[in-house]
Design a binder for these strands. Sequence first.
DNA 1: ATCGCCGATGAAAACGATTACATTCGCGCT
DNA 2: AGCGCGAATGTAATCGTTTTCATCGGCGAT
Lengths: 344, 344
Amino acid sequence: MAITIKDVAREAQVSVASVSRALNNSASVTLETRQQILAVAKRLNYVPHAMARSLITRRTDTVGALLPDLFGEFFSELIRGIDLAARSRGLHLLVSSSHGNATEAAAALRSMQGRVDGLLIMSPHVDDEFLRSYLPGSMPAVLMNSPATSARYSTMNIDNYGGAFAMTQHLIRCGYPKIALIGGPDGNFDASERLRGYLDAVAKSGEPIESNTYSGDFTEESGYYAGRQVLATRNRPRAIFASNDMMAVGCLFALNEAGVRVPEDIALVGFDDIPIAPFVSPPLTTVRVRIANLGRSALEELATQLVEGDTTPSPPQTFPCEIVVRASCGANAFARTHKNVKIA
Amino acid sequence: MAITIKDVAREAQVSVASVSRALNNSASVTLETRQQILAVAKRLNYVPHAMARSLITRRTDTVGALLPDLFGEFFSELIRGIDLAARSRGLHLLVSSSHGNATEAAAALRSMQGRVDGLLIMSPHVDDEFLRSYLPGSMPAVLMNSPATSARYSTMNIDNYGGAFAMTQHLIRCGYPKIALIGGPDGNFDASERLRGYLDAVAKSGEPIESNTYSGDFTEESGYYAGRQVLATRNRPRAIFASNDMMAVGCLFALNEAGVRVPEDIALVGFDDIPIAPFVSPPLTTVRVRIANLGRSALEELATQLVEGDTTPSPPQTFPCEIVVRASCGANAFARTHKNVKIA
DNA sequence: ATCGCCGATGAAAACGATTACATTCGCGCT
DNA sequence: AGCGCGAATGTAATCGTTTTCATCGGCGAT
């Protein structure tokens, strides 16, 4: 049986109250007795029972992360950001990921009840309605990259719109008169924002840019097929903007296969800056997202709400993306003369 | 204030004991009263207070995962496997990752005390000595991919040795007379096992295979430099086995740069089957590791120990790897005629 | 009719901490 | 000397469950 506060109290010949006070250095305890108590606690290797403590303090010092079924690098980076920030705040991290639909997410939410002080939520299945019905009003939460716009919760989004806008602008400045976009899955928030950024950039360019879109679903395979479709068109675009890197890679495959040179014949860019982006050939120009930052900031916002007990959310925040220019857009030389553009 | 069991009891006009019994369908409760209670609980949207419950039951229904600073795909896959298995067992997952050294790991271990029923531990910094001093004897744990061999805990390892052995054998069968290895970081368990597999395969081949090793640290950059070193040697090897894919990619870079053709001039293979492996050119022959499986199995082993209350570990288990033959080893045709080899 | 048994239910202890409140004690002031 | 005050410490209530033990009531057997 583990040792309890009583054991420490007995051994130190004081009351449990004093032990508690000494350990939480609250209220007044003589320096002498405090040291005595700490010594005993250390000697006995006493660790306070977390559950018993949270029963009375009504705090668990734990935050929950509710995540969808994420892939690869994105997931790791997000968790890494959250985890590091949580640890530095003395918070624990309860993870529930891989939720494919709203029902699963709701179940996870429910089972986290009472185990966490607050929640970080990222889920395409979570909208205002969902939150209202499944999340108790008293539970602080921060939404990441969410379509929900509830005024009750802080939201932190990746600036998909801005990133896509900037990248499209970059392609336009490079002088490509016809630019195609390979879209993401229907109903995906990231995908629709990127599409919006692309369309706006084209519309606002003031130049007669031709645009058209091909459908994809963020998989490398769909990028491959989209690439073949592009090649099959009579009047080929001069540049292709794949709305994520995996599709860009698939598309690159299709272009290579057909003997089309990148960027000489067709320029190609992606979005995400996945780890392989620098290693495909030609190295892929893409949009970098600081995912770990998103996770860290979201946690910190939540932590702030927790300590202040103030759940009024700060205004929605968006995380800027940066354009990483490599060879695939055929514009290295050009980029050097422009700001807000990073050359890798 | 949240609803407690007392509220339900009052509303249903029974004692709290009956409510508890009805909800845990333990002991004997009339069908009638049980239904009555369940109805009330549902109506009030009652969720039992997890902390209060675990205070008395001495179970948290939570397992902790102690992980090192992992990168990309590996981390995600591992967590995915663990998470899914945990959810299907009704267990929660408390994650603490990104530990760079033993001190951090020890702190994390300590802070998890009392919040988890058991632990999944993967950490290069954790050895027998560490476990003995920081892990209470009563805490069930499963070690993943660990150098520790404590008889007290189950261990599950990736068969790095077997994978490297098989891959080396594959290269030998392809007829390459001189095969170089790019090693991983010093003291890294995976790296040393892979090295061992390579050396054994060469030694046991019965053929006069020339071997030599170059040093690396699992980063793409180190692969690049190793590649240049290889090229600088007088008597170049005919094949290079990079002990992970990132280094293989870096090495490929160096080879391309020098105009050396892969696999015609030098064959190149890696280890891990990271997501880009199929997309570099030529597509990389490598060793696939089923990481999610490792996570799932580890969790299930732990869960079994938890429900059975029996902490005697099952024998160490190793997770087989499979060779994925793509173009970079120059042996597609050959591989088709051999079993235990997967063609992608 | 009485007894004993058993199934259903309730009362209360227990889990291990925090904390409001009570107590004690020393000390300075009148 | 006695009084009051404040600092240090102790006592006990409390958090929300589970679970042991006691109670109650009905029913079959003698």
